[in-house]
Amino acid sequence: MKKILFPFLLILLLSNCTSQKNSEDFINTTSGRYLFNANEVLEIYFENAEMHAKWRGNNDIELLKVDDNSFYMKELNEKMIFVSNPKMHIELAPKTEHDGVLYHFEKMKKGEKTPDEYFKAQEYDKALVAFKDIQEKDSLNPNIRERDINRIGYNYIRNNEYDLAIEIFKINIALYPKSSNVYDSMAEAYLSKKDTLNAIEYYQQALAINPEKSNAKKAYLKLTAK
């Protein structure tokens, strides 16, 4: 507790000695959305020239100004440093807990969205490109786990949102084309939609990869026996 509390009290003391107002140029340069991780955004905005943030459902996080470029965010227990070169980004001030890792949050371009945001906006092609970009940069990124994307699809099926399930399974197939499970899941989405022709096609693809996949084999034989 002391390790967390002491830096906060020190930053609070420093911030009380610093005007919380920011210049118009700084406001224009730093306002915007930053990639907190590959599929999550930290948004910076200003009210009365004082910095605020939107993050994880909290739309009014006030940041304490430490100096002209540094701000403390209590919710993260981190000092955030705004760096303009080579292009605007946020860095977290080094500390023991970081274990030597430099945290770097890039500012997003105007109109740029995360993969989830593209998907929710029904921009499925752009969502796929964004997910593929994550995979190319880091194939082990938790935002593209096959089982997690699959889980999202089954949630759509449970809510009778079959077209959304099909779209998210299309992305999973593109990310993991050698997995029998992603084709089996797509088949179940089509089957739930009562589209037996497409269901059969995807069960066939699942079985072509893994002929011993029992649930796909059972469903396929039942559909083709009719």
Rank of each mutant, 00 (worst) to 15 (best):
E40N: 10
E40K: 10
E40I: 00
E40T: 07
E40D: 06
V41I: 14
L42V: 04
L42I: 10
L42T: 05
L42F: 11
I44R: 03
Y45L: 01
F46Y: 14
E47F: 07
A49L: 06
A49I: 00
M51S: 00
A53P: 04
K54T: 01
K54R: 13
K54Y: 02
W55H: 15
R56S: 07
G57W: 15
N59G: 13
D60G: 11
I61C: 10
I61G: 04
E62M: 06
E62Q: 12
L64T: 05
L64K: 10
V66A: 01
D67W: 09
D68W: 07
D68H: 07
N69W: 11
N69L: 08
F71C: 09
F71E: 03
F71Q: 04
F71L: 05
Y72K: 05
M73G: 06
K74R: 11
K74Y: 07
K74G: 04
L76D: 01
L76G: 10
K79V: 14
M80A: 10
I81K: 11
I81S: 04
V83G: 12
V83E: 09
V83W: 04
S84Q: 07
S84Y: 00
N85Y: 03
P86M: 05
K87M: 09
M88Y: 02
M88R: 07
H89L: 10
I90D: 13
E91Q: 14
P94F: 12
P94K: 13
K95P: 01
K95D: 04
T96W: 14
E97R: 15
E97K: 15
E97H: 02
E97Y: 01
H98R: 15
H98E: 10
H98T: 02
D99T: 00
G100K: 12
V101Y: 04
V101D: 05
L102A: 13
Y103M: 11
Y103N: 05
Y103P: 00
H104A: 03
H104G: 04
F105M: 15
E106A: 10
E106R: 09
K107H: 03
K110G: 00
G111R: 12
E112L: 11
K113R: 13
T114G: 06
T114W: 08
